Amino acid sequence: MNDVPPDWIRPPDLDAARLAQHEIAERAEAADRLDQPRLVAGVDCAGAARGAPDRIRAMAVLLESSAKSRPLATGLVEGVPAFRYVSGFLGFREIPFILDALAKLPRRPDLIFVDGHGLSHPRGCGTATHLGVVADLPTVGVAKSILVGRPEGELGQEAGSRVPLVWKGREIATVLRSKRGVNPLLISAGHRVSQETAVRLVMEWLAGYRLPEPTRLADKLAGEARRTSEAAPLL
């Protein structure tokens, strides 16, 4: 991880967080600065077990070469976020845990798929962009719902159909039908990946499901860990 200002990870208040997002967005790169990735990670954050409403569980999964490969390693971290939930500032709740989960992987990935937005954010600093700049790694945002913007055009039903997501006159993401009959995804450049390449990489890492395999596995394994925790007897 780069030496980054503390406020980029744990800001003391909302004003500092807003300033940090503007600074991170200025540092973000929306052009390709990666070779064909061999080691790819997926990260996902979710709530922890029942009875712990303000705990976060972060899962990182490391894969090699293709969507059909088995996970090489996983990293799981859980804790209480220091930053309260405010729409548009989710990264400050999740990033500390994601960084710790990634640190548990035995090798540094070439690319990270993030369950969240990248540049498709009011201040150009969704979780994928935030993580990419802080971790100094290429990232792609894979979100399930629109934060800002509107689709331009009618999205087809076939897998691979896509239309731009436009906000304030510019394309900020791609609305992608990753599988026929499922709700579309919002694919956005995070850091050091162009929008065109972000969509291509997502398509390459699909394995018959709605989500690309790195984030699908991170979500699945985090859910399994949550169910195991909930099933454990209270001491």
Score class of each variant (00 low, 15 high):
2 N>P: 02
109 P>H: 05
98 I>T: 11
86 V>S: 06
89 F>S: 00
188 S>G: 13
164 P>H: 05
145 S>I: 03
39 L>M: 05
148 V>D: 05
206 L>V: 09
62 L>E: 15
3 D>N: 15
55 R>F: 13
153 G>V: 09
48 A>M: 02
89 F>H: 10
135 A>M: 04
46 A>D: 05
165 L>A: 07
167 W>Y: 10
149 G>V: 09
133 V>W: 01
166 V>A: 06
151 P>R: 03
91 G>L: 11
40 V>N: 12
150 R>W: 09
92 F>S: 03
14 L>V: 14
184 P>G: 04
171 E>H: 00
98 I>W: 10
179 K>C: 01
139 T>Q: 08
44 D>I: 04
227 R>M: 12
92 F>W: 00
108 R>G: 00
126 G>W: 06
114 V>I: 06
224 E>G: 10
52 A>W: 12
146 I>M: 09
22 H>T: 11
180 R>N: 02
130 H>R: 07
172 I>Q: 05
4 V>M: 11
213 E>P: 12
147 L>Y: 09
46 A>Q: 06
196 E>C: 07
45 C>R: 00
143 A>Q: 08
105 L>F: 12
71 P>N: 12
116 G>M: 04
58 A>K: 14
100 D>N: 01
167 W>F: 13
104 K>S: 00
196 E>H: 02
58 A>P: 10
18 R>C: 08
82 A>Q: 15
85 Y>L: 09
225 A>M: 05
112 I>N: 02
138 P>H: 03
34 L>E: 01
160 G>Q: 01
153 G>Q: 06
70 R>Y: 10
184 P>L: 05
126 G>Y: 07
193 V>L: 13
120 S>C: 05
144 K>W: 03
136 D>V: 07
4 V>K: 12
73 A>D: 15
175 V>M: 06
169 G>N: 07
6 P>E: 14
98 I>H: 09
15 D>W: 03
52 A>E: 15
83 F>T: 10
158 E>K: 15
67 A>I: 05
99 L>Q: 12
